[in-house]
Design a protein around this nucleic acid. Structure first.
Length: 139
DNA sequence: GCCAACGTTGGC
DNA sequence: GCCAACGTTGGC
């Protein structure tokens, strides 16, 4: 299964806000990048992903699940832009910082490490397991 | 706050 | 269709 990583700045949309939405979830709107949109289009309901805080914290803080497939972004009339809905699954026991990812040679090819600007990105099964391990999450 | 990396726009 | 200019993101 393909896993994902969603990036957000804390002041824009934080993990706490995501958790507060509960089972209903929230649409991941505001993406105006074709690569990121294409990733969302290929997501399926039930897909899991990491939630990453960019800029200030720079760490993966929790696990989310896709709860609605791609649909038009409600924040724009431009029909090029679509987004999925996601809901919080659980927080990680310990956040995994960007530095930890950079320091682990097994994560050298992770998109998070190599393409800092892509806000929605794929995570391989191997990378998923390694991050869970670094987080002290038993899976 | 700066700057590198990247994506997008628009003139030709 | 190319490429320079510009805007944005995000790490440092």
């Amino acid at each position: 299964m393909t896993r994902w990583l969603f990036k957000s700045e804390v002041s824009t949309w934080s993990w706490d806000q995501q958790v507060a939405k509960g089972e209903v979830g929230e649409e991941w709107d505001g993406v105006r990048n074709y690569q990121a949109r294409n990733h969302m289009r290929s997501m399926k309901v039930g897909d899991l992903g990491f939630f990453y805080h960019s800029q200030k914290d720079k760490e993966i803080v929790g696990i989310i699940e896709v709860c609605a497939k791609a649909h038009p972004d409600s924040t724009t009339d431009d029909d090029r832009w679509e987004c999925v809905d996601i809901k919080a699954v659980r927080p990680l026991p310990h956040p995994v910082t960007l530095q930890m990812c950079k320091d682990d040679p097994r994560l050298a090819d992770m998109v998070l490490v190599n393409n800092t600007r892509l806000s929605v990105q794929p995570v391989t099964d191997e990378e998923w397991q390694i991050v869970l391990e670094l987080a002290g999450d038993q899976g």
